[in-house]
Computed example of a mutant assay.
Amino acid sequence: MDIAAMRASFAKAAATGDEAPLYFYSHLFLSHPETRAMFPVSMAHQRDRFFHALGEVVSHVDDLEGLVPILKQLGYDHRKFGTLPAHYPAVLPSLLATLEHFDDEWDEHRARTWTEAYGLVASVMIQGAEESADHPATWRAEVVAHERRSVDVAVLRVRPEVPVDYLAGQSLSLEIDRRPRLWRYYSPANAPRDDGTLDVHVKARPGGPVSTALVRSVEVGDLMRLGPPLGDLTLGEGSDRDLLLVAGGMGLAPLEALVDQVRRQGPARRVDLFVGARTEDQLYDRAALDALQQACPWLSVRYAVSDDGLSDLEQGDVGDVVLRHGPWLSREVFVAGPAPMVEQTVHGLLQHGVPRERLRSEVFAPSRPGPSAEGKVTE
């Protein structure tokens, strides 16, 4: 497999922005019209998803040991769309046609390389789907509480008909009846409960059809479907180190779930949670966090604001504030939030001396396709 050639041809297609995915889906729907029903009516938020996922594969293709579990998870996740093994061959001709169209150096060698790579990806994803056949493809769930925390943030409590087996810190995709076939990923803000309920934190994004509906239109009693859990922003088996958790924006939800896991399952440990925002009024879950800190003597919660000179809270980017309160060399570290915040915080902690193997991070950003090696979508 010529990895350099793969990356070169993919880079040319990716550089065209929306043109390559538009070409791909047009080719796919013309050649296999039966696949159109698997996608939303409007493709505006969908077109970049396949190419983003493909980019993840290309960037990690030289690490098959790490890539295989991701592909198996994707295969399981794709069951929610009704994807069958017979659907995978339909994608390859459209993929090759798209790459050839945007690559002036396309030749038989690159075609063979991509055919081999796609065959591997498809076989592993099919294997993941088959291995998960005993688990549900989706879970039906009901909204049992809906609380607006601000103009654009809401916290929903949902109850699946059958409890979802997930780990604190993982994410679940959801589809609401008001927005069919538009799946978006959210991390429950709690560890699994006996009653199976999940708390979902949602921020309405400009132009975001799902997040806007979840915040402003969805009501108690509404139904949704949940997809299988994904992601590895989780406490490892046997983990007992003290924790450093750094959150920005909606990245707070999975870190709250980790706190909840420690509170209800142990083992006992020190947990320091830093929450960053531009302004104090964006700290939407502050009251709940303050109450949790009062109830848990092992938990310390600190807030940082980067653009609010009138606030009495600590000033500065949350990553810089974290370093002021170090050292953190003995901690297991989790960072979640917007890309610039995650990148700055991770870089600072590594420079600070935190071992890379004890630092996990995940980007929460609008218009991303889901949890992967790099990040997850919040709209």
Rank of each mutant, 00 (worst) to 15 (best):
G55P: 00
A90M: 15
S94C: 02
E100R: 15
V58I: 04
Y76I: 05
L64T: 00
E105K: 15
L64A: 11
H87V: 03
L99N: 01
E116Y: 04
A111D: 14
G128N: 06
W106D: 11
I126E: 11
A122N: 14
H109P: 01
D107M: 04
L84H: 14
T115W: 08
L84K: 15
L120V: 11
H60N: 13
I70H: 06
T115Y: 11
F102E: 03
A97I: 15
F50W: 05
V61C: 13
E100I: 01
V121H: 04
Y76V: 08
S59V: 00
R79I: 02
L92P: 06
D63M: 04
L67H: 01
A97L: 10
H101V: 07
T115I: 06
T83N: 09
Q127C: 08
E56T: 14
V57K: 00
E108M: 13
L71S: 09
F102N: 09
A90R: 14
M125K: 05
L71V: 10
H52V: 14
G128F: 11
S59H: 01
H87R: 06
A117F: 14
H60P: 10
L64F: 09
I70C: 01
V121T: 13
F50D: 13
G66H: 00
F51W: 05
V61F: 10
F102V: 12
P85Y: 05
E65M: 12
H109E: 14
G66I: 07
K80M: 07
V91Y: 07
M125T: 04
